[in-house]
């Protein structure tokens, strides 16, 4: 393992160990986060009861079980695609001058951060497996897995992995804007708030009118939450599934190129403040 990859393997290991130190706090925090899910499930029960219908939606129909499953599955999507602290961290490195440590060492900043994030996500997913396992077991009555075949499961896994890549490079782009605007926190607030809605975290985008549903589904944000969950539920199949995955790959490539370009151009502007 004396290849260039070995240094990234070491970063992965150290980051994984660091993350596992606070597993108690993490478990407690995850449990707290689940409790609002209960109120959301009860709200949707009331919505379906009030409507008197068994299915709701415009571009696709969801029954109550599918709706609750969807709302649980977007948590899995976001587990892969959310990158807390990434953009803010990059902007801080630019602002306080600590970015120069990447320039002085034979290491690429985005490569380092990707490996670091990969380790954190691995630790997060391993630790979250228990509370999420309990939650999904308690809600197993809502899940109907009859439609699941090998292709759907494979497509779901691929869509989640791509959601991780897309989430990483999207946030990296925002972080790299720090070369020009220094403080990206405010921008990040706005983007995260918007993302909560347009990614389909609140409810399936299929509930919106056909125009808005089609528009939002074509944006990169939908691949961070909506798309993987819809794939798992069998709402995206056949040609639409292949097309959806292809578009997700295209968004990943776009943000990869954009982040690398912004980083390269940004470095020319960089002044390395700080001691």
């Amino acid at each position: 393992m004396n290849l260039p990859l070995s240094k990234y393997w070491r970063i992965f290991r150290v980051s994984l160990i660091e993350r596992m130190v606070y597993r108690g706090d993490f478990l407690l925090g995850t449990l707290f986060r689940f409790l609002p899910m209960v109120t959301t499930i009860l709200l949707w029960h009331a919505i379906y009861a009030g409507s008197g219908k068994t299915e709701l939606g415009s571009t696709a129909q969801y029954n109550l079980d599918q709706m609750v499953s969807y709302l649980l599955l977007v948590h899995i999507s976001r587990m892969f695609s959310s990158m807390p602290g990434l953009a803010g961290g990059i902007a801080r490195s630019i602002r306080d001058g600590s970015l120069k440590k990447y320039l002085l060492q034979p290491i690429d900043m985005l490569g380092y951060l990707l490996t670091y994030r990969l380790a954190h996500k691995t630790a997060y997913i391993v630790t979250a497996a228990l509370p999420y396992g309990i939650l999904f077991f308690l809600c197993s009555g809502y899940f109907h897995l009859g439609h699941l075949d090998a292709v759907t499961v494979l497509a779901y896994i691929v869509s989640l992995l791509l959601a991780f890549v897309l989430g990483f490079y999207f946030e990296s782009c925002i972080g790299c804007l720090g070369f020009w605007i220094l403080e990206v926190t405010s921008l990040l607030y706005v983007v995260n708030t918007l993302n909560f809605f347009v990614s389909g975290h609140m409810f399936p985008l299929d509930l919106l009118s056909p125009f808005w549903a089609t528009l939002l589904k074509s944006l990169p944000f939908s691949y961070l939450a909506y798309f993987p969950a819809a794939v798992f539920l069998g709402q995206v199949r056949g040609e639409a599934l292949i097309w959806g995955l292809a578009v997700e790959v295209a968004w990943c490539v776009t943000f990869f190129i954009l982040s690398r370009t912004l980083y390269r151009i940004g470095l020319h502007r960089y002044s390395a403040f700080g001691g």
């Binding site: 009331a46 919505i47 009030g50 409507s51 607030y189 706005v190 708030t193 918007l194």
Partner: peptide, 25 residues
Amino acid sequence: FVEVLWLFILLIFYRTIFTQTSVVA
């Protein structure tokens, strides 16, 4: 602006819900 946006999102959420039903609880 974020607070305004959040209210806006909340209102769209409930507007979307009430296009599907006339009453909630």
